[in-house]
Simulated assay, not measured.
Amino acid sequence: MKRGESVRPELRTGMPAKYQGLLAAVGFVAVMVLSLAGQVWLGPVMALVFVSALRMSARIRFEDAGLSVRVAGLFSTTIAYREITTVATGPSTGLREGMGLRILPGGGTGYLVGGPTIRIQTAGAWLLVSCADPAGAVAYIRTKLPEPT
């Protein structure tokens, strides 16, 4: 990708289907157990919780001066391009790493829904962000970083 070339202004990444299937099954079992245990009123509450989790997504919005990251519609941060020291494709994450806003081993912060990620390093912190197109996102972000002097 050439410097200044346009990319979609926003990348949304949903939870991978294999994790959706697993969480849907767990949610179904939980609702059934609650119903059989006589806690029928908790069934719809539990179903709402699981449906919300299944619809969770991570979003990276590319703006003029930086990018904003949001997960689960609740947790967000903004990073100026000038603050980014390195950006690279990250590891694929799953249920073991968790989903939503996560504090990761080694002191990083995760904005995760499972699947491929990008790793963004700044002078004082690092982030791991779920991204359906990590190679494209990394290439675009690199075009926005300041030229080395």
Rank of each mutant, 00 (worst) to 15 (best):
S35Y: 15
V45T: 06
I60A: 01
R102T: 02
T78Y: 05
R61L: 12
A47W: 05
P44D: 00
P44H: 07
S92H: 08
P16Y: 09
R142S: 09
Y140A: 07
W126G: 07
V33D: 08
S76N: 10
L22F: 14
T77D: 07
L95F: 09
G43E: 05
A17T: 14
E147M: 07
R96L: 14
G94E: 07
S68N: 09
S92A: 13
A30M: 15
G38D: 14
M15R: 01
E147C: 01
Y19L: 10
F75H: 01
K2P: 01
P105T: 05
A30R: 05
F50P: 00
S68D: 07
F28S: 15
F28W: 14
G4A: 09
L145S: 08
A72D: 07
I118M: 04
A139N: 05
A137L: 06
A58Y: 02
A65M: 15
Q121K: 14
R70H: 13
G107S: 12
A25E: 08
Q39S: 13
V29I: 15
V49N: 08
P148N: 07
A125D: 12
V29L: 15
A80P: 05
A53V: 10
A132W: 03
F28A: 15
G107Q: 09
S68Y: 06
G27K: 10
G73L: 02
G94F: 04
G110F: 02
V113Y: 00
A80C: 10
T149V: 07
F75T: 00
I84F: 11
V69A: 02
G110W: 02
V45S: 03
P146C: 10
P16M: 12
E63S: 12
G94L: 02
A58K: 01
V138Q: 04
P91Q: 09
G115V: 01
A65E: 15
P116H: 14
A132R: 06
F75A: 11
T86P: 06
F75G: 01
P116Q: 15
R82N: 04
L48F: 06
F62D: 02
I141W: 03
T89M: 12
P148T: 08
A30K: 10
G114W: 04
L101N: 03
G108N: 03
T89H: 14
L74A: 11
S76W: 01
P16A: 09
T149P: 10
T13F: 06
E5S: 13
L128E: 01
Y81P: 00
A37H: 07
L42A: 12
V69D: 05
L34N: 11
Y19A: 03
P9D: 11
L54Y: 05
A137V: 00
